[in-house]
């Protein structure tokens, strides 16, 4: 499916989505509370079948977080990017680790480095940092005078 058809199909499926222009792949924002249901639809809807989550990450925009999900389909070979904005004070989003198993580790990574809470995640704890580590290293306001070397 090419990008135009995909966009039409996605608009039908998710009316609330706001599309971003000018990117390589179709990129759209969803509201974080709706994310889980949308993810399920993306995974199972005919003609979409986004069964492969190849990248899951988060960006700290200083005012808010943006979660990014790079989704692809091994059947139809199309790719989309889903974004969800999160509140910076209380970043919470529903987990997708039951839809795409790879998300379990990736979400733990994001939790570890950004402090985003994934609701209903089966095993949400620090992944790289030690259990007693304080702070969220990849946030822009993270300061660690001992371990961080400023260039």
């Amino acid at each position: 499916m090419n990008n135009e058809e995909l966009k039409i199909k996605l608009t039908e499926l998710i009316p609330s989505a706001t599309f971003e222009e000018g990117a390589e792949w179709i990129t759209f924002f969803v509201d974080s509370p709706n994310w889980k249901t949308i993810a399920q639809q993306l995974f199972s809807a005919d003609g979409l079948n986004f069964n492969y989550l190849f990248c899951l990450t988060c960006i700290d925009w200083k005012t808010h977080f943006t979660m990014l999900y790079h989704l692809s389909s091994t059947i139809h070979r199309h790719t989309i990017v889903v974004k969800a904005n999160l509140d910076r004070i209380n970043p919470e989003i529903e987990t997708v680790s039951d839809i795409w198993r790879t998300a379990e580790f990736h979400e733990r990574e994001v939790y570890d480095l950004f402090g985003v809470i994934f609701l209903q995640h089966p095993d949400l704890r620090r992944l790289f940092m030690t259990d007693e580590w304080e702070g969220w290293p990849l946030r822009k306001d993270y300061e660690d005078p001992i371990n961080m070397i400023k260039l």
Binding site: L113, R126, L127, F128, M129, T130, P137, L138, M148, K150, L151
Partner: peptide, 16 residues
């Protein structure tokens, strides 16, 4: 259990 040689390359790259 990961992280024994986690160097946070992603953070380092932000200042390179």
């Amino acid at each position: 259990h990961l992280g024994y040689i986690h160097r946070s390359i992603e953070k380092m790259c932000e200042s390179l």
